[in-house]
Design a protein around this nucleic acid. Structure first.
Lengths: 339, 339
DNA sequence: TTGTAAGCGTTATCAA
DNA sequence: TTGATAACGCTTACAA
């Protein structure tokens, strides 16, 4: 039983394909009775226009791609990506754009656009090489819509949706200084990743500004286990630091777990501060720098839609802020599952 | 600057489109020099085959749809879905199938298949009406591939990937009985949802089997806030139950938060048991019934791929098991961030 | 070894 | 108001 096509309807009704096509689009040029007839047969026979054929003639697929730069395992283990995805999807859905999703270690960012599989693309800026940026820029000139979440290592004319990490970091440092800390350690993201370097720099500056000493910097791989390892390493060297800062919440979670296994306590033995403020952070009482992940995702999608529709959209500006919770201040009232 | 097509290459080389098409597919019929020539020009000119055109002639898109039955907000707030998605993506990616994603309150399950936008579909069985099942069954007969995660309310010939919830539930009840509990309360999922009813029934039976009394059943909406509300309600009525069971971890998290705000403690004041065993459960020390969400997602995708490729795949069988942690046993050694 | 031509299912431009 | 007809970009018999 083949799928029913426009042709089939036309033949059964003894009219031209174009008539059917128009009738189904409620073209006013088509007489009411004809439209009704066509519509009825279409419903009865379960006709549905073929997406590929449509895309071919329209030169657009109506799909937006979302490509994530790491394995599915890595990506979905981190609630940060869920939040981003949530933001993206919450705009894509009502706008009528399905999302094509890819999570791969070495993604070919441009391909879906080049194959006209998607009309627009959302990617994480931090993972894009200079060459990839250039290719995407060229595609945008040809009509594709692209938005990056997070700044890429090189400057670009692409729409970049970012969030100023300084306010939150500054507030965190102020908080530490105020609560008597003087020496801290930083568990940054991957040493060679520009975004991790930038964030580390922000910490350095803010720490200095508040008179805090950065005792030690180690690099984690942004995973739970990486955070646990870093924590063990810091603990084993009998660290002087009274507070540990983490490149993301996931590593901070790993650290909490490692501390727990070693009968170490936060904040009694060491203060712990994360970055992202994903949902479990609130549950665990993790002090962290809040990033508006949902909004970033939504903004990226909104921008892509605006680019495609040719409508104007004034870019939103986003900032981080520090959320003090249990792991950074013993004297704060919030408990284990505190807000 | 229009996108370069097969036609363009053919003209520039003075050969036929078909020759180019074959050469690019390394067709052995084409002479080596011609193949090289074609390949070179294709690379230089940045040629990429148009996905829609390909789909049209191949009558297949090479895409698998994943449709989730609730809003993006709801879906991505629950780490359970991340785990599913992770499983699905981790099979889809290496198999070369991009995922088309939709999260909507009232999804039209069949449409993507009917439009030939996707070759296969993964959906949550629990959300499908009888009518929707029938439509999907018909589409499968016509060559579509479908796999459901979780059993639908009505029986179906579709491939259903499930997980036996009884073992874990039984183990949980045994654990409760052994640790001295006699009366428990259940915060089930939505009252009218068949899957929630089935799970409640499983609890009832296992509780009876272990001589435990089900004191009270309330229904939550499977959200964090819903769990918190349920917990407040149970607490306010001065409940007799010494243990509360939850339809999913997310509600249990909400309950923990609500308890915390009321200076109530788990497990000292009441034991808490969740369902799913999402990542934060381990971090929070939540006792829960483990569900192999990742594996369920992977199995569904594997099944879809097998259906499409026409290869055989013997369906995996999955079971739950109980994971005792801090919230159900004060005397267990695991701490706050315990395993 | 390569070319011709038909077809995939729609849409859009002309005419009629 | 409707009908031919030519795209859209690629694949695949069938010829040559």
């Amino acid at each position: 039983m083949r799928k029913v096509t426009l042709q089939d309807l036309a033949e059964q009704l003894g009219v031209a394909r174009s008539t059917v096509s128009r009738a189904l689009r409620d073209d006013l040029q088509i007489s009411a009775p004809t439209r009704a007839k066509v519509r009825r047969l279409a419903d009865e026979s379960g006709y549905h226009p073929n997406a590929a054929a449509r895309a071919l003639t329209h030169r657009s697929s109506g799909v937006i791609g979302l490509v994530l730069p790491r394995s599915a395992r890595f990506v979905f283990a981190n609630p940060y990506f869920s939040d981003l995805l949530d933001g993206v999807a919450s705009v894509a859905e009502p706008a009528g754009f399905p999302l094509l999703l890819s999570a791969s270690r070495r993604p070919d960012y441009a391909r879906w656009l080049q194959e006209a599989r998607v009309d627009g693309l959302i990617a994480l800026g931090s993972s894009l090489s200079n060459h990839e940026l250039e290719v995407l820029e060229r595609l945008v000139k040809q009509g594709s819509a692209v938005a990056l979440i997070g700044a890429p290592a090189h400057s670009t004319s692409l729409r970049v949706v970012t969030c100023d990490e300084h306010p939150g970091i500054d507030q965190a440092c102020e908080h530490l200084a105020r609560t008597g800390h003087t020496r801290v350690a930083l568990v940054a993201g991957p040493a060679r990743a520009p975004y991790a370097q930038a964030r580390a720099r922000a910490w350095r500056e803010a720490l200095a500004h508040h008179g805090l000493t950065l005792d030690k910097v180690v690099h984690g791989d942004d995973t739970f286990e990486g955070g646990a390892e870093a924590a063990r390493a810091l603990r084993d060297r009998g660290d002087q630091a009274s507070a540990w800062l983490f490149g993301n919440d996931l590593m901070a979670f790993g650290a909490l777990r490692a501390l727990d296994e070693a009968e170490f306590r936060a904040p009694e033995d060491v203060a712990i501060i994360g970055f992202d403020d994903v949902m479990p952070a609130a549950l665990l009482g993790l002090s962290t720098v809040h990033q508006p992940s949902h909004e970033l995702g939504a903004e990226a999608m909104t921008s892509v839609v605006a680019q495609l529709r040719g409508t104007v959209h004034t870019d939103g500006r986003y900032v981080t802020h520090f959320v003090p919770r249990r792991t950074s201040a013993a004297f704060l009232t919030s408990g284990g599952v505190g807000g």
